[in-house]
Design a protein around this nucleic acid. Structure first.
Length: 613
RNA sequence: GCCCCGGUAGCUCAGCCCGGUAGAGCGACGGCUUUGUAAGCCGUAAGUCCUGGGAUCGAAGCCCAGCCGGGGCUCCA
């Protein structure tokens, strides 16, 4: 709903002609009105408001009342005015909302007039013209609606299977798990501070896009390369689970008039990112579920093919609260390497979950980190599957936090949130998996079992390395932690946009530099040459600031020598290496990781100065 | 969304308290220097001081509203 508020010294109107079929019946008396010293509220009810009439009306009443008390008026005119929105709601929605709005304002003690809906009316309006006399507002249903606080109970599950109270756990704390227990179960306030990774992000051109909605990111050339490498990596990791996987591709907006889409959306709650097109209302997908389910429902499945997975890197959209946004972490547009595994039954799902769990763990350990986990589940599922939980905890090697949720509220029976404790000691969820027992039926995904019966498969949802954004967050957080330990912050070599840079002392070495660059490129190494007319010192400094892992200085001395000095970022040393030993080291660092050729012009002198370091 | 802090040149920031001609470093550009491992020297150009409104003879500065960012809260299917 949109409203335009005018503080007027005089307002009058008169009904002329009926504008629409569904016009409100009106008596002679209601046909015209005149009032002095009033707040006139021109209102347009928009499509989408019908989802919660009461919330829209009460939010509108609150906004209007706020302004009325600021400008100190007791008279309010609620005036239906279609021209504030290009996305109008239907008259059958609009009239009840406007009536309700007027009632609410009356109940707050205002003298309220309402002009009839659905007519052309002439009006005279005298606006006071002070700063607050003209205001427009957009009202949504979301604001006021505080979802009923869910009753959940926390417990710590020890590695030996004992359950203990979170409070007691703090007496013998695991260093990182402790932060999770404090934050999630005991609701301690976070320490805070400005995170250093934001500065790192900007170095690689990873930042907010100011020309879009809040919460949308953009990636410069370096960021784009990093993003693509992580995307390849996510698919590679999914394949390593050893299950048959099918990659699919689809769209990002789904029609809310489809029952399965609408029901799924209702489960998601109030963070739906919606878009109205012509007469239809679409929800932007918040994960790949919609696309994969709406496709797999059309497949013919036999128990012989299960379990198998579908995968898509899904651009996904969530209308997060503006105050909650955090670059690379909580964003309105995110990229989910979303894998769904369709299983025969719960036992099958538990087996597949173990594979997923082990893979998720081995990935974070490759970064030298540990997850601390929250297992959201129901008391019933936990009690019936204590062995399964024990197996999961064995992989963790430390306690986990259980969060018991009520039965029948969620579509899953188990939802694991894997969080890292970041450089500022805050838990940050990165990876996740869920065992879903509701959506196969909702979307009509079924397989034929060996006895010929039609069965709905439990579905595992997972992002093994987290969203691309959050994997990046982890990578940069590792750099921040390294810096805290007194090391140079850096990216893993496989993700470094440029892996080796050659700095010729004078331009006499350019030919040699190009020859070495050719050799390195042949070995799948991203290399460039800083051929700018700057001092060696300055070019080395800039390479360091750019986090280049290997910096080669080539001068007169190296001509024909067969070796050259290499500045190795990881060790903080300058070492004499041959081309072969450098290649061997680089290959060792990047083996088993995706590779993409350098998309940059080889010479820095020909590169636009987008870099901000 | 709520509370606190901030927004000044492409970037990082000073100036704001106490109103009176818009500042520095980096970067860009031009010249000198021909360079050996984290900033060589000199010069030039560059700003709707976030936006809109208000009080004032006069606003980057004071007041109000909004937008954007950082922190905290709430939220996190």
């Amino acid at each position: 709903m949109r409203i335009l508020l005018i503080h007027s010294s005089h307002f009058e109107y008169e009904v002329r002609d009926r504008a629409i079929e569904e016009a409100e019946p009106t008596s002679e008396k209601e046909g015209k009105d005149s009032i002095d010293e009033a707040l006139v509220a021109f209102c347009s009810v928009e499509s989408g408001d019908e989802r919660d009439n009461d919330a829209v009306a009460s939010n509108a009443a609150r906004e209007i009342s706020k302004v009325a008390s600021t400008v100190k008026v007791k008279n309010i005119v609620v005036y239906p005015y279609a021209h504030l929105s290009s996305n109008l709601g239907s008259p059958s929605t609009a009239v009840p909302i406007l009536r309700k709005l007027a009632e609410l304002l009356v109940s707050e003690g205002y003298n309220v007039r309402r002009s009839p809906f659905g007519y052309y009316k002439s009006f005279k309006l005298e606006c006071k013209g002070h700063p607050l006399s003209e205001l427009s507002k957009t009202i949504t249903a979301e604001k006021e609606r505080r979802p009923a606080v869910l009753e959940t109970r926390y417990a710590v599950l020890e590695t030996d299977g004992r359950l203990i109270e979170p409070r007691e756990y703090l007496q013998h704390p695991h260093p990182e798990f402790r932060f999770l227990v404090e934050k999630e179960a005991l609701r301690r306030e976070l320490p805070g501070g400005e995170p250093r990774y934001l500065e790192y992000c900007r170095k690689f051109g990873i930042e907010w896009e100011p020309y879009s909605d809040v919460g949308h990111m953009r990636y410069g050339p370096e960021g784009t390369l990093i993003f693509e490498l992580i995307t390849d990596y996510a698919w590679q990791k999914a394949c390593e689970l050893g299950l048959p996987l099918l990659q699919v591709r689809g769209t990002n907006m789904f029609d809310l008039s489809i029952p399965a889409v609408r029901e799924h959306a209702a489960l998601f709650g109030d963070r739906l990112y919606e878009v109205g097109v012509e007469e239809k209302q679409f929800v932007l997908r918040y994960a790949a579920c919609h696309q994969q389910f709406s496709m797999v429902k059309d497949w013919t499945l036999s128990y012989r093919q299960l379990p198998f997975g579908t995968f898509e890197l899904a651009d996904s959209y969530r209308l997060e609260q503006s105050g909650e946004l955090l670059l690379c972490f909580r964003v309105r547009k995110l990229h989910m390497p979303d894998l769904h595994i369709y299983c025969r039954d719960l036992e099958d799902a538990k087996k597949a979950s173990m594979k997923v769990h082990e893979k998720i763990y081995s990935e974070i350990r490759k970064l030298g980190r540990e997850y601390v986990s929250i297992y959201n589940t129901t008391r019933g599922f936990f009690e019936q599957n204590r062995d399964f939980f024990a197996d999961l905890v064995k992989v963790e090697g430390k306690p986990v936090l259980l969060n018991f949720v009520p039965d029948g509220v969620f579509y899953w029976v188990l939802n694991v949130e894997y969080t890292i404790i970041d450089a500022l000691d805050r838990p940050r969820e990165i990876a996740t998996f869920q065992i879903d027992i509701g959506n196969a039926e909702r979307f009509g995904i079924a397989y034929i079992d060996h006895d010929g019966s039609r069965r709905f498969p439990p579905i595992i949802h997972t992002a093994l390395i987290g969203t691309i954004e959050r994997y990046l967050f982890s990578i940069f957080d590792c750099a921040a932690k390294a810096e805290d330990r007194g090391q140079k912050p850096s990216l893993p070599v496989w993700l470094s946009p440029i892996q080796a840079r050659i700095v010729p002392v004078t331009m006499d070495q350019l030919r040699d530099a190009n020859r070495i660059a050719d050799e390195l490129e042949k070995k799948d190494i991203r290399v460039d040459i800083d051929d700018r007319e700057e001092t060696v010192q300055k070019r080395v400094r800039e390479a360091e600031i750019s986090w280049i892992p290997y910096i080669i200085v080539l001068g007169q001395k190296e001509a024909g020598a067969g070796s050259f000095p290499v500045r190795v970022r990881a060790r903080g040393t300058v070492e004499t290496m041959t081309l072969d030993s450098l290649v061997a080291e680089l290959r060792e660092q990047t083996k088993d990781y995706p590779f993409t050729r350098s998309p940059f012009p080889r010479t820095l002198s020909t590169r636009p100065g987008y870099r901000k370091s």
